[in-house]
Write a protein that binds this DNA or RNA. Structure first.
Lengths: 135, 135
DNA sequence: TCTTGACTTTGAGTGCACTTTAAGGTGTAT
DNA sequence: ATACACCTTAAAGTGCACTCAAAGTCAAGA
């Protein structure tokens, strides 16, 4: 299947601006063109964009992704470096998930306070009791 | 206990600039001053900063936190609104964790490809086989 | 033929969350 | 006394990731 930039944008729920920006930054070095210079995306290209989005949404910067893509372009000799980048990133994502779960616990405790109004267990900053407890 | 802005910054691993910025934006409406105008943080204040950080790190914008803090300042009538904000945010964080786990799976599959070089299961965008498979 | 609409490029603009600068005040140590 | 290390403010600057504007090309439909 062939897709225009707009179709890809709709399918993946991002804007055509973003796709062009990613290409400009070297994140999509493969995109072909039709005789008029218009971008032509294929299924495998869409898979690649999905990987880019995965990396972005999990906190990898555009610059770091660019580095990774450049390594891909250098061929098989860089596979070990790429593996290491991915491994490091995996660990970062795992840490992030753990941290998010801790934050979720904190939010749940806050909600418990709102649900049951447990005085002395938690308090909002502008509650009159806040400054009393603070001393 | 009393803390200077620098001590809080060190304790919570953020910068004094950030703490001043948060106060300026209305996220820390409680901070007291000593006779020279220097900020004085107490233990309860640090707890509040930790909640602010929890909300920020889980994706709540400074503007939204500001709205929440303003509601806190309005007193008990706004508890239900605050509870709803926190509940909505909790759900967003849960969604985010689920999404992160899906992304982690994707990253693990990529790593599996690098570890075992499974041809036809995954491929990098600049691999010669990429365009072949794309057709 | 002419309009509509989707595409192209380059370069500039936006929004957010800090981050720093500049200019100045205060307290302690040598 | 004078340096040093901390604090203060208002305002300007930075970096990132988009996001858009302007000006143009091209193909299909009324």
């Amino acid at each position: 299947m062939h897709y225009t930039i707009k179709q890809v944008a709709e399918k993946l729920e991002l804007t055509a601006y973003t796709l062009r920006y990613y290409e400009r930054e070297g994140l999509l070095p493969f995109v072909e063109r039709d005789p008029h210079g218009n971008r032509v995306f294929r299924d495998a290209d869409i898979e690649w964009v999905l990987l880019i989005r995965c990396l972005r949404d999990t906190g990898m910067s555009v610059a770091e992704i660019k580095r990774y893509v450049l390594l891909c372009q250098e061929g098989d000799e860089t596979i070990e470096v790429r593996r290491q980048i991915m491994l490091d990133h995996k660990r970062e994502v795992e840490q992030k998930i753990l941290q998010m779960k801790l934050y979720l616990d904190k939010i749940n405790k806050k909600l418990h306070y709102y649900d049951h109004f447990v005085v002395g267990q938690d308090i909002d900053c502008c509650n009159p009791k806040y400054k009393t407890r603070a001393k």
